[in-house]
Design a protein around this nucleic acid. Structure first.
Lengths: 357, 357
DNA sequence: ATAAACAACGAAAACGTTTTCGTGTTGACA
DNA sequence: TGTCAACACGAAAACGTTTTCGTTGTTTAT
């Protein structure tokens, strides 16, 4: 087992100085062709690779970006990571992931761990607990330390940074319009509690669509699930709630659910109660995951394009990192700086499958 | 925007030496209580955190482990990552992920990127292309450079290292036995090409179970899917193949599929052909993912416990890292070292749901 | 009174790079 | 022959730590 070879060892072996080796390897004009050849050959032979850590220390940047997401076993977040990794790698960056597990404390711990020099910037989606507490000081603190953040999906006004979101509002609008245009008169909504911004926005889209269609919203037709406990296993609770919901609203002929789990569960319950899909009840979900595609009947959904979100977020972050590098941001006025934060909106797309007419 | 504060700045500000600051912060007995107090207070005030990169360089270890998996948008791999991250964080390590995307070249590029000092060790699952090429030199090369590797799930004899696998063989055995014990006489197998080791092992389990049950295996009852192209969208191809399979084997009364996608698709096709599940045909899949749980009927599966695999892999790797640290492995004989590589087998579990009797 | 012990601190090396700024050796040219 | 580039290379600083080994004063024991 040979330890990785260093410049120093090459220098010693070839009886030149470290500087000479470094220059020769980078092809500097300063070094004679003879020695350059010799050094490069030797380096190749021993498979020399510069030590990333030393480079990071010297350059004061690590060329890696930190991701913190609430949960990785989740199709949407996985696709976002895939997108981030894709452009990060293409642009010479690595990706290091932390999981907050929807916990405020774990989010902070993870951020502190990574902010200690391991990364150049963050891409993250806020945990539910943090949203509930509305405590965002750790985000602003790291931003103030000069470390850029890009927020995606679950974003918040209190943090001033680049953001990538989905047009939740328009997405829901499209979905509910689809239901209306295929004849639904009593459209139920299955959503989450309001503190998750995406849930709130999707609810608004639903209401707006009804209003546009001259239909009065009925509070009984809105089912809010307390998902603070829907981790796993609470599937039966979900089913029961939805079943009660259907039973107390016999006239429902369409359902819009703010995620695919709710939608698929709604289909299951509906079928159990004897409804035909899409004949008696049509269903549309949000988030085009693996469940939607393989459910029976396959589910019409609003696709969020998670990968595109990830790609865009990575591009935004890296752009900013490399901008700072060139512009020596220390001398830019506070006021100027805050103005050019972008919020990119990724368009949703209605993917029509067999759960609608 | 204040840059992160360093020991040097604290030293300058408080008019002491860098060494004094360092010692005071680590609570060394060498420094008087007065100065210690003063320095610690100052450090807290300015929110000092030691620079990880500098520490990594000094200690020659990064306290981060590299994961390389073929695909992240995949329930099984996500759960493995979750397991790795869990114990890694608990033991003070970070996790940096690379995606090979089932490509040989990308696997190598990713490994080289990370092996350049960014990480202390690898946890990885081999890409399909690599398995097909049977070229494992990059794994052995990094191991020879002194960087430990733990292989999981898709492992291979040619690489000498710690491994964590699932008892694919016994898992299949259990599954097929279950089908036999509930009265199936003609059990079909839907599997992958042989070069993926897990597919091969699961096939062997199937054959063994039939043999134990005194049933002659019938080659017509085995459907091998070429999954080199099943990325996405080739779903219809899969459905067609399975449909042909069913049609040319009218007497099938049970199906064992080596992954949940095949199993769910088989259920879909079967139902389309008018079979009742589980009355006419029973189905069992492998990999307990989100599809199995929410399919209709819910799918009986062999659970691989991905999270447990990840946890175990991380423990193995970190154990080895910290062992090397204490034992100064340079002086251990070659022969001695190779002997204590472990292969841990994670037991599977048959989760019975509604697709079997 | 003097050596020894101790307390409190600083200097410097080391980790592996890159880069700036010398420095000595050539050759050409006046 | 003396001056000046050009050439080829080396020394050293810097990135931010930790740690070993001094180096001071001050106290204790003899």
């Amino acid at each position: 087992m040979k330890r990785k070879i260093t410049l120093k060892q090459i220098a010693k072996e070839l009886d030149v100085s470290i500087s000479t080796v470094s220059k020769a390897l980078s092809g500097s004009k300063e070094i004679s062709e003879d020695t350059t050849q010799k050094i490069q050959a030797f380096a190749k032979l021993y498979n020399y690779r510069p030590n990333n850590i030393a480079l990071s220390l010297k350059n004061r940047k690590t060329k890696t970006i930190g991701i913190i997401i609430p949960e990785i076993v989740h199709h949407f977040f996985s696709t976002v990571i895939r997108g981030i990794e894709l452009v990060a790698n293409k642009r010479g960056y690595n990706v290091i992931v932390g999981l907050s597990n929807e916990s405020f404390t774990k989010e902070i711990i993870n951020m502190e761990m990574l902010a200690g020099g391991s990364i150049d910037g963050f891409i993250l989606s806020i945990s539910k607990e943090t949203l509930l507490k509305q405590d965002y000081h750790h985000f602003n603190a790291t931003i103030n330390q000069g470390m850029p953040i890009v927020l995606f999906d679950r974003v918040v006004n209190e943090v001033d940074c680049d953001k990538v979101i989905v047009d939740d509002f328009k997405g829901s609008l499209k979905a509910v319009n689809k239901l209306l245009s295929t004849g639904c008169k009593n459209i139920g909504l299955i959503t989450t509690m309001d503190y998750v911004s995406v849930g709130r926005l999707r609810t608004q889209g639903y209401l707006e669509a009804l209003e546009d269609g001259k239909i009065n919203a009925d509070a009984n037709l809105i089912l809010k699930i307390d998902d603070s406990l829907d981790v796993e296993g609470h599937l039966d609770v979900l089913e029961n709630e939805i079943e009660k919901f259907f039973k107390s609203n016999k006239k429902i002929d369409g359902v819009f659910a703010v995620n695919e789990l709710y939608a698929v569960t709604a289909m299951k319950v509906a079928r159990k109660l004897g409804f035909k899909i899409p004949d008696d009840i049509q269903v549309i979900g949000f988030t085009d995951g693996v469940l939607s595609k393989h459910a029976t009947p396959s589910l019409t959904t609003v696709s969020q394009h998670g990968q595109k979100i990830g790609e865009k977020a990575a591009d935004l972050l890296i752009d900013r990192l490399e901008l700072e590098e060139s512009e020596s941001i220390d001398y830019i006025e506070e006021t100027e700086r805050n103005e050019n934060f972008k919020t990119v909106i990724i368009e949703t797309e209605l993917i029509e499958r067999d759960s609608t007419k």
